[in-house]
Design a protein around this nucleic acid. Structure first.
Lengths: 281, 281
DNA sequence: CAAATAGTGTCTCTAAGACAATATCAC
DNA sequence: GTGATATTGTCTTAGAGACACTATTTG
């Protein structure tokens, strides 16, 4: 009886509850989509060089019209933020991510001149070879930019983006780190829109942190790959180099061989591997 | 001249831009505040046992009136989500967190019966001994609950909360893991409010993941502590046990000795240590 | 003295890094 | 054959786990 009364009054409460009586921020998702692009070598025998690249759009609207920005947009009533991240990436760039991974929330009050906009940042990894970028309805152009992000002599971080024609660069300072998520303060945004220089930096840091886990690393490659390709992904993202023998030992637990080999490389053919499932050892 | 025109039209655009023309979700912060509580031992010589505890409030309002929930609330116009997390924790429980760390965003469409509410989850770690919980203006009661979270025979996760009087329990399934952030699907929420069983599970998982890094671990302890206390924190959070000799070796790089000792323990007095600053080796 | 924790030393095992050596292909 | 990568094996070193041993206090 008491419970019945309680249910009725809860129902009444909810009917009279006006969620619109509070002022609410807008909520957006911004997506840092990474891929690895190959650079031709003059020597036919040599391995191709790899470059880590980030997908940006040239904004077609104010604010930051004609500036480069991460793909992203406002969350809709009937979708989760993850769904919004998928949708916006596809709409604005023509690329369908296979997965998006949350990396943090950016809620500084004045980060968007249009008003209060809270942005949830996502990292997405695109299998190499997807060069079918396009400009969507609200992005006039999409392009892959090679990305570099390193600490300079001051202890500040330099973010450099380069698509062959356009060079963007920004300067940032590490602000805080917790739970493996790092926030950066923008010293100089260059011509990147909003606080996207900081979002990009945090996203790349998060990507680097987890690329050694043999988890998302496979998202950079087709189903079958050589161990050298796998190693190059890790080396490219982390900007380090490793000895093949040692890398193979580490990777062994996470891959399984196939019967296929690559061919025509001008040297001993490499065996193709695939990701091993159900390996949590 | 062109640039001037551009600036004028951008200004005009922003003046005419009505951010309220889109339907927007409400945005909230929910905080999982952890501490370690001691359990008395009958034997005066014995070490106290430790329990990992979580701060919950009993809801004074609909929806989920009288259910237990994480402290939290809606973000205001003039604060970041991090600031909101601080404010709500203090308002609702009387406890001032020294830091809050983001762990993820929960945006399922129907997670709140009042309407569309997107929740940003935070973990906070409270130095042991803060027992001054209170009920704030919109929380009728606040209390620390011992927390257990383990995989059972089915592969499902059981979340158990216990404050001496009240036992709460929930059943969850691991849904996805990326970037070290794990999402859970609620099978049975028990009497926990909203999707807080899932938020609590993700938060504890995140805490466990980083407690071995000798970073936030110190937030559980006063400024000076013994190595045994430090070890007990790690053991309690991870629910494991380690040999003191090995733990000391690992911890050595992150602490520095003081001249003080504990006394009156019925055994050899332990030297007190403090967190070493600037150690990134 | 007994019981308990504090703290040290050392053996073993594993994983990572360095490096040498062999295999295989395309030109 | 030459020049490149593919692949395997092994030596060394660093760190974690196991465990034995000593030190110190209070009832």
């Amino acid at each position: 009886m008491d419970e019945l009364l309680e249910n009725i009054s809860e129902q009444k409460f909810l009917e009279n509850y006006d969620i619109n009586s509070y002022k609410r921020p807008s909520v957006a998702a911004d997506i840092a989509a990474f891929t690895i692009r190959y650079e031709e070598e003059e020597n036919y025998r040599r391995c191709e060089k790899n470059k880590l690249s980030l997908l940006l759009i040239k904004r077609g609207e104010f604010p930051f019209k004609d500036c480069w920005a991460l793909p992203g947009g406002f969350v809709r009533e009937n979708e989760t933020i993850e769904e919004c991240a998928f949708r916006e990436t596809t709409e604005e760039t023509g690329i369908e991510p296979s997965a998006v991974m949350p990396v943090g929330v950016f809620s500084e009050i004045d980060r968007d001149p249009r008003g209060r906009v809270i942005s949830n940042a996502f990292v997405s990894v695109i299998t190499n070879g997807v060069e079918h970028t396009k400009g969507g309805y609200d992005a006039s152009q999409a392009s892959w930019f090679d990305i570099e992000f390193d600490k300079n002599y001051d202890g500040l971080f330099e973010l450099k983006l380069n698509n062959g024609e356009i060079h963007l660069s920004a300067l940032l300072k590490e602000k805080s780190e917790s739970f493996g998520f790092t926030k950066y303060e923008i010293i100089d945004s260059g011509t990147l829109a909003f606080d996207h220089a900081a979002i990009i930096s945090s996203s790349l840091k998060a990507l680097r942190r987890c690329i050694g886990d043999f988890d998302i690393i496979f998202d950079f490659l087709p189903e079958k790959f050589t161990l050298t390709q796998l190693q190059l992904v890790q080396e490219t993202v982390l900007n380090v180099s490793m000895l093949p023998a040692n890398f193979r030992r580490k990777a062994a637990d996470y891959v399984e061989v196939t019967d296929d080999y690559i061919t025509g490389a001008g040297h001993r053919p490499a065996q193709l591997y695939r990701k091993k499932l159900n390996c949590k050892n």
